[in-house]
Amino acid sequence: MSKLEKTKKIYQSIETPTKLDDLVSSTIDEALKQKNKPFVWFKPLLYTAASLCMIFIGILNTSQAFAENVYDIPILGSVAQVFTFREYSHSDNGYGINVKVPAIEGTGHTELEKRINQEIQSKIDMVEKNAKLRAEENKQIILDEGGTEEDLSYFIVEIDYEIKSSTEKILSFVVNVSESFANTYTYQTFYNIDLETGKEITLIDILGENYKEVVTKNIMEQIKKQTENNPEFTYYVSDEGFEIVEDNLKFYINSAGNVVISFDKGEIAPPPMGIQEFEISN
């Protein structure tokens, strides 16, 4: 359907509310009877609002060109969003999966949306495929050792997402993949989008060319403070400290607009400590 046809359909579907004035008047009068005098000053304001509403709708009905222009006006307050595109679950012998597939829209950058949505779906498809293969391998091992299907331990996969921040300028969210068998591990993929340029944000964009030094300094200060307050905390850091050497650090942007570096379970601290996050101040 063309833009003109859509506009025409909207235009033709609007009915002139001939009884609106009577309805508003009777409603106001009834309210004033109930409330007595305190709100008398408000009556002219309501009449004015109702009249403006009637004028606007009247113009829509008498001017198709005006209706077409209104159709093009973006909804106030609308911003890019992450939504659940599809949700499903299924299970088989030794294997179960629960999935919430996220997708993005409203960024104003169609190609960006298409690329990221396809990338997310491709990763989910790969996770499902690998989970099925691992479940089959586990099943075969149990059967080869003389066990039965009743002896199988379920391999469970959970896929969902979380929005970290959403403004008119930045959209930041994470896709979580959790695998549970003997232990539980969560793998995260972060997306940080500059809605003005339509590009994914890098640490250089926010923290500058020397971002590795900035991140290292911040993390070392936080680790020192945490270990002083919690002696049971242990990190894979020597007394001399450590140096960020990776180019692809995982991060998101929180609601305060700050970068948060995220390390997988077991990456920078013993696995029982789980995922480790460090908010960076520049």
Score class of each variant (00 low, 15 high):
134 R>P: 07
199 K>G: 03
57 I>N: 04
28 I>W: 00
46 L>G: 05
34 Q>E: 12
282 N>T: 13
31 A>D: 15
185 Y>F: 10
55 I>M: 13
129 K>E: 12
233 F>P: 01
209 E>V: 09
21 D>P: 05
176 N>C: 10
113 E>D: 05
259 V>R: 02
76 L>P: 01
95 Y>I: 02
262 S>V: 13
29 D>K: 12
184 T>H: 09
61 N>E: 06
91 S>G: 04
226 Q>K: 12
129 K>P: 04
233 F>E: 09
192 N>V: 01
160 D>M: 03
82 V>F: 04
215 V>R: 01
2 S>A: 01
208 G>K: 04
131 A>C: 08
177 V>C: 12
73 I>M: 11
282 N>H: 12
183 N>Y: 13
14 I>N: 09
1 M>E: 12
50 A>N: 10
227 T>M: 03
138 N>Q: 12
164 K>I: 05
209 E>G: 04
134 R>V: 08
143 L>V: 03
147 G>Y: 01
25 S>L: 07
217 K>T: 03
153 S>M: 12
28 I>Y: 00
4 L>K: 12
267 E>C: 04
15 E>D: 14
44 P>Y: 07
243 E>P: 06
36 N>F: 12
250 K>E: 08
205 D>V: 08
72 D>E: 11
134 R>S: 13
68 E>K: 13
16 T>N: 15
216 T>G: 04
168 E>N: 15
41 W>V: 11
39 F>R: 07
70 V>K: 02
25 S>Q: 09
115 R>F: 14
142 I>W: 01
246 E>K: 14
18 T>H: 14
186 T>Q: 00
74 P>M: 05
41 W>G: 08
71 Y>K: 09
38 P>T: 12
163 I>R: 08
245 V>Y: 13
